[in-house]
Design a protein around this nucleic acid. Structure first.
Lengths: 245, 245
DNA sequence: GTGGATCGTTGACCTAGATCAATGCGCGTG
DNA sequence: CACGCGCATTGATCTAGGTCAACGATCCAC
């Protein structure tokens, strides 16, 4: 396993005019609930950090001292069983907020898929900041509610869908990644490995591979390269994803 | 299927001194964030309703006009696939708050297992109430964060645990139902049917039944009656639930 | 350009859990 | 108290997806 706790590279926020104003993730992030005038307060408690692909930056079960806000790259969240079985509970990209749980240890681990940049906020300090910006707390609730809906959708997938339906669902949601209202990109990159996809969908690598080649054979998708894919029949794929066998 | 949309029985809140003060679910509920003095405002927008076992009181995909707070009884939340496959995403009891999602339709259905009593709040009215009581919004965020953690745990179960491990996990969490900090009741009732358990664990009725008899044969549990159960070996059961095979 | 590591694909076979079918067990009803 | 209905259990069989194993592609490092 390549995963080990990160030796992260801290970026010095001084020198940047205001790291938060310039942040390219701000439009998608909960931070946008904080008015420009007060961003300096946020920037003051944010520790901007970068980790390389394969690096773990949250360890499941470790003391939860910080919140995280991913600002660039892609990461996977996962839970482990003692014998090594792994369930990936989600993939996160720029704008995602992590570490909400009230528990004093993290309920999941996080590992960078590509080089990841994130802001780390000491829990206590963000807590007091939240008290001053109820709008941000509102946004957090909104985000949490949405994630809850996504989680239920994933339970349906894991509990009741076939391998084909799981792959179809996965491809459809990936193609929607960061697109406005239900639109889907025709062609897109899958930054994660087959093993990650398998652990996300509750399958094995082999089944993912086989199912993908079958979807290709049926003309639903084109596999441009290992990590690039195009959807050829969006209607059929969405039907499959929705459980129409 | 017995499930059809409820013909609910509305209880007249007048006559009660103050339905919210007297509410037996208040200690477990998010409503406890509202000070006694202001409870009348909450009571004013709450519609107290009762539905019989088997009645559906939230329809998946229907317009989400209300929030719900269960105050008595037990219900199941579920998602359906067009061909009837069902995933139960959770069981709720007194104190559970429902309908958080920002979407304008409900992402899941809810059906009473036993006779259920709940308060229904028009979305818009509760929204404005929340603006006046940020503490309640805080509590909601807390609740949502906890449910998110539970949802991830359930994904691990559905994606990676064996049937035995699933049953063990289920029994352990059920025995913890409403207990303080990690304690578990030795003996407890399972209000739901085998079919509900199966749809919650991503299994079939037959597998649930077989696995349960096997756990009994191994001396881990005693089946007092169809709906009553005792844990004989909590340590082994918890080990199993945690994935120690 | 060669060697080796990592990742993905494909095939042969196996098994946990699904499906199909029969039977048992309360429990409420007339 | 017999009847019927909805649930649960148990057994026989089947299969989707897992496991094991071989091979191919890609990508660096030297």
């Amino acid at each position: 396993m390549a995963s080990q706790i990160a030796r992260p590279h801290l970026l010095d926020p001084r020198g940047a005019v205001d790291p938060c104003i310039a942040c390219e993730a701000r439009p998608f992030s909960v931070c946008n609930a904080i008015p420009d005038a007060d961003l300096a307060r946020l920037a003051a408690i944010a520790v901007v950090t970068e980790v390389a692909a394969g690096q773990c930056f949250i360890g499941e079960g470790e003391p939860a001292n910080s919140f995280f806000n991913v600002t660039a790259g892609a990461a996977k969240l996962f839970k482990l069983l003692p014998d090594g079985r792994r369930q990936i509970t989600g993939f996160v990209t720029a704008g995602h907020f992590l570490g909400l749980a009230v528990s004093d240890t993290y309920a999941f681990g996080a590992e960078a898929i590509e080089r990841v940049r994130y802001c780390r906020f000491p829990r206590a300090k963000l807590r007091t900041l939240l008290d001053d910006f109820p709008l941000m707390e509102k946004r957090l609730l909104e985000v949490a509610a949405n994630e809850l809906v996504a989680a239920q959708e994933q339970m349906l997938l894991l509990g009741r869908k076939t391998a084909r339906e799981r792959l179809a669902s996965f491809l459809v949601t990936q193609s929607r990644q960061g697109m406005p209202c239900g639109h889907l990109r025709q062609r897109f990159r899958l930054p994660m490995t087959r093993s990650d996809i398998a652990d996300y969908l509750g399958l094995t690598i082999e089944t993912v591979s086989r199912t993908l080649t079958r979807l290709r054979a049926e003309g639903l998708v084109t596999i441009m390269s290992q990590s690039e894919l195009a959807i050829r029949d969006p209607v059929a794929l969405e039907g499959l994803a929705g459980g129409l066998r």
